[in-house]
Design a protein around this nucleic acid. Structure first.
Lengths: 162, 162
DNA sequence: CGGATAGCTGCAACTGCGTTGCATGTGCTT
DNA sequence: AAGCACATGCAACGCAGTTGCAGCTATCCG
């Protein structure tokens, strides 16, 4: 496991400290949730904001750590994440270690995405750039999403201190 | 779970029946294995040939089924697959259900690949076409492989009989 | 040819991520 | 304020993959 990932994440969480971030953002997240016709519970709002603020796709474990004071039950968090994915507010991916990673859906909802996946520590970085070209599809197949995956080692894991 | 996938795979396995396929192919597979400096055991040869003949990336379970008469221990199969991946003869991916899928590495070993992943039944199809463009990498990141992922529903799962 | 050795193989137990069932609590409607 | 649907927490489970260890075997070397 990549120690640096933990440290970096801790740093990120500092930024997300509830005493620091604006209530306006919370309201915006709540709005997005209510728009789907569902309840804007504290758990959903908080998790969605976490995802929005994250620089990379997060695991269930990452999020659990990041929630800190507002501790949720393991299962509840899984269900919140399931709900976010189902309602289109988040995306789910599996990393090299076959654990799910979640990222917030962009507001404009672009179906094409570029990721960098570190084969070493498993982290997934969302790259805004490089929308892939529209491909030709095989017979009878329906396309819902295009994803360009770049695999290799992230800066830290290349650096040697993993 | 997609019944059709099982049926289709059974059909594929018929083609791979040991009484039908050529010993020449077995020898070719053995050669590839020995070239790495390792032992060409029956298990490795058989699994590698299975992967070469497969039209899509296979799960551990698929392969276990496909071996039929030559039954391997669960763990041994996992280890054979691990070895194939480590030695570069096969690639490992995780599907939507977060289970590993294995595919034979192309002889020419192209680092760019295109897959179609069915979000419903989880199957992964290797599309030969459309090698993605060379992207620009972030700072300090080293790239080892590019993969274009098309997600949606395969012909069968769209057809309704899943 | 035959014994030694590295490295496969098989068995059993274990880990970790995710899921299901059920009872309880809570946000939203009227 | 009351009621109901839905969200939460707890416990137990399932599945894919892993680890440890003992036994087997292909290959090497005398």
């Amino acid at each position: 496991m990549c120690l640096w990932a933990v440290l970096k994440f801790a740093a990120m969480m500092t930024v997300l400290n509830p005493s620091v971030d604006s209530p306006a953002e919370a309201e915006a997240a709540a709005l997005l949730i209510r728009r789907t016709g569902a309840r804007a519970t504290p758990a959903r709002v908080r998790v969605l904001r976490l995802l929005h603020a994250a620089p990379a796709a997060l695991t269930h474990h990452d999020i659990e750590q990041g929630l800190g004071d507002l501790a949720l039950d393991r299962v509840t968090l899984y269900r919140v994440l399931d709900w976010l994915v189902e309602s289109g507010l988040a995306h789910r991916n599996t990393d090299a270690q076959r654990v799910f990673r979640f990222s917030a859906a962009a507001i404009g909802e672009h179906a094409a995405h570029t990721h960098f996946r570190c084969e070493d520590c498993g982290r997934v970085f969302c790259l805004e750039a490089a929308p892939p070209e529209p491909p030709r599809l095989p017979d009878g197949f329906s396309l819902s999403r295009i994803e360009l995956d770049l695999r290799g080692r992230c800066a830290r894991c290349t650096g040697g201190n993993r």
